[in-house]
Design a protein around this nucleic acid. Structure first.
Lengths: 206, 206
DNA sequence: GTTTAGTTTAACAATCCTGTCAATTTTTCG
DNA sequence: CGAAAAATTGACAGGATTGTTAAACTAAAC
């Protein structure tokens, strides 16, 4: 049992992932994936049967990552403001690793009803978990008079809005492909990260 | 010179707009647009020459709308907090009329380098105009000690983030096509609008 | 009523798309 | 080694795609 350094199936998967994240399902053809990966395009069907199945495998994984991580970020036993601060920062840092991810998922969800249903089904339990973490924490702080009353869903959407939009803006204003990790991008993101924490914390204070 | 109630060119344009907004450039074929509009697909090429030209006409208009309106919303001679409140609300209400617009523009900008350059070129003067409106207003309030010091770009991005993401969320969580103006959607949006104003105002206070 | 300009149509190219399959090469393993 | 299994290939089918064009239709203008 040798460990192949070049596993064809994996190679196709990685190439497809890169192209799909960049241009979406309808923006990429099977032929192009095969060409880019340097393999015969029949192989793509040999391993994944259809373009749809290949795409779904990638989409499923990415959508799950995106949702799961949002819970993970806030699932820590910390003082309230710390929990919020660390949560925002963790979520932000996660997106730094995968800047195209949010727009990729959103694009496909809006374009395709089945995928929308798929993600809503997944989002529901995730939403409940995070709700159960955040709601009592908010209530407690409100009772203590430390923060103004705020709905959990509003707070979470605010955080998601600010963090996600930072990466959408990066993709619009910078050439993320060539610039990659340029100083300008890093500086912009650092500023947004700091701003997002401050904005959310400030907005909670009475 | 009679005013035709059914102008074919206009009909194609409107149909194309609806489909492109929904599924993007690569998600719609010329044949489909023609079929949906109930005209021969050659007409589409007769009037617009190519799919690209037809699309660009729509994209250009939509992208301009999206940017211009953001300035308009804040270009009012009002007390600072009023200016911010009214600006957020106007921008939000504009998006209510065209909920698919932000994701449409973002999708195409990310997928296509030329369109990205196109929008950046357009965004630059718009950005400058709005910058000149907001920056002195902020400085004045900071000097008065009414708000904490904040960068104009941060404030504007915060507003855009919260407002735009509300409509992205709507598209993910609701079936905007069939539900249209359902009570659930209206309620969700009303809550987000209120939240966005509050969040921004609160985050500015010292 | 014939010309003229603007519309509309059907048919056609050329290309690209997804997916299949039988034949061939490579790998695995008894 | 040699048979069985797995991986890879090229050719091809059946459609769909964008785009062109010549001919037919329509309605206004002279």
């Amino acid at each position: 049992m040798e460990l192949k350094t070049t596993n064809t199936e994996q190679l196709i998967l990685e190439t497809a992932e890169r192209l799909f994240l960049e241009r979406g399902y309808t923006g990429v053809s099977c032929t192009e994936i095969a060409k880019e990966a340097g393999v015969n395009h029949a192989l793509l069907h040999y391993y994944f049967r259809t373009k749809e199945k290949l795409f779904n495998q990638i989409f499923e994984q990415k959508a799950t990552q995106l949702l799961e991580f949002f819970v993970e970020a806030f699932d820590r036993d910390l003082p309230f403001f710390e929990k919020v601060k660390i949560g925002i920062e963790m979520h932000f840092d996660f997106l730094v690793q995968q800047p195209e991810l949010p727009l990729f998922v959103l694009r496909e969800v809006v374009q395709n009803k089945e995928r929308k249903d798929q993600i809503i089904q997944k989002a529901f339990p995730v939403g409940q978990r995070i709700y159960k973490i955040i709601t009592p924490a908010i209530e407690e702080e409100v009772k203590k008079g430390v923060i103004r009353p705020v709905k959990a869903i509003d707070l979470l959407l605010n955080i998601a809005s600010l963090n996600v939009f930072a990466f959408v803006a990066v993709q619009v204003f910078f050439d993320i492909k060539s610039d990659g990790k340029s100083a300008a991008i890093r500086q912009f993101l650092a500023q947004r990260k700091k701003n997002n924490v401050e904005t959310i914390i400030q907005s909670l204070k009475i």
